[in-house]
Design a protein around this nucleic acid. Sequence first.
DNA 1: ATGGCTATATATAACTG
DNA 2: TCAGTTATATATAGCCA
Lengths: 234, 234
Amino acid sequence: MARKKVKLAWIPNDSARRATFRKRRKGLMKKLEELSILCDVEACGIIYGPDEPQPEVWPSKAGTRRVLERFKSMPVMEQSKKMMDQEGFTRHQVMKLQDQLRKHERENQELETAIVMHKCLSGEQSLEYMNMEELTNLAIMVEAKLKAVHDRIELISVQMTSNDGAIVVQQNNNNNNNHQWELATMETMQKQQTWFTDVINPVNDPNVYYGGEEAMQPYMMSITNLNIDPPYWV
Amino acid sequence: MARKKVKLAWIPNDSARRATFRKRRKGLMKKLEELSILCDVEACGIIYGPDEPQPEVWPSKAGTRRVLERFKSMPVMEQSKKMMDQEGFTRHQVMKLQDQLRKHERENQELETAIVMHKCLSGEQSLEYMNMEELTNLAIMVEAKLKAVHDRIELISVQMTSNDGAIVVQQNNNNNNNHQWELATMETMQKQQTWFTDVINPVNDPNVYYGGEEAMQPYMMSITNLNIDPPYWV
DNA sequence: ATGGCTATATATAACTG
DNA sequence: TCAGTTATATATAGCCA
């Protein structure tokens, strides 16, 4: 936008286009950063360069446009009684599709968070560069998993009122942290019922207090594996 | 950037910040569109507004990070025979989740394309500003629908070998366009079997050649409604 | 809050080395 | 191809209705 007003159209000249691309992408990213700083909003921009593997999957630009122009030229339906007219039908379809899409998007977010969680667990990913939203989602998922652990523990505690000496679960109440981990030794753990197909992990986090009346080996349940298929357990 | 040089920092004033946000987001999106048109690159920008349901659901930034640092500090499992160790398990889980995610992403793309298609049909959306990938996807979907139409027609043609004079489908062979539309009059159409619950649309596109031996009213099948629930038909 | 308006700050097209 | 320069086109901050 200088020296000449460029018309908004593909730049045929190859080097000119690449030059423009570099300049404008830089400017765009700068503005994006400014916006996020000025208004403190979460934002991201994704711009695939022409070099990156572009899905050149299909016909010519002209052919594609032609097929679609025809599509566009379709007129709206004529009305007909006892039947939904095309416009109403289309609206209905769009809403249905959008519902499905929203549902999938929710599910995808959960999947992505779960992937991150597992990667964090295996040490494959660091938390350093995650943004606020990702961290929040991850935290929510962790909280949910923790709650599931608690609920499971609760159930077990109730079921084990007739203690035969092999009980492995004890509530830890002497800490105001809401998320105390429930503990058990590996040995006794392995004698337990199948509700304990949940993974039991050793932990060495000094921030976690391992309460209990007897000297127990510090094992804790993994919060990652509550809803997954057997037979994966340790 | 006008009237005064603003320093690059968070804008404390509430309404000023929101105004700036609206203006700049709009400008950013415009530039993004320009870039994708000028250079024909795939690009997208994501900007969460401050108003949009930002999951402020949870504690402070610090608190969130703390929970997650703990998570990060979890050590890798010790090995155990007969059981998958945690790292292997985690890798397995990650792969499973990523498979699900990829599947969902494919499905989402199809859904999005279908939405665009329906919106184009109802005139709610123009093709003008769709980028190459969207157009390509849409074209692929249109082609698939057309093929489905053709297959259906083929079947019907075969089934109607004993022509009673009411046949409504004729192959149009005198045009080298691969996607000739099959034609029928509204009157005869309505007498047809239920394979024709597909929508029949009037069309006025001069580029489409309506062949046929008799003077038929130019109706054509909609390519949008082959896979959808009855009783939507015209 | 929203939609102009105008003066300026920025971005950038064309050019140069 | 790239970096720097310059003249213009755009974006937008502060105001007003």
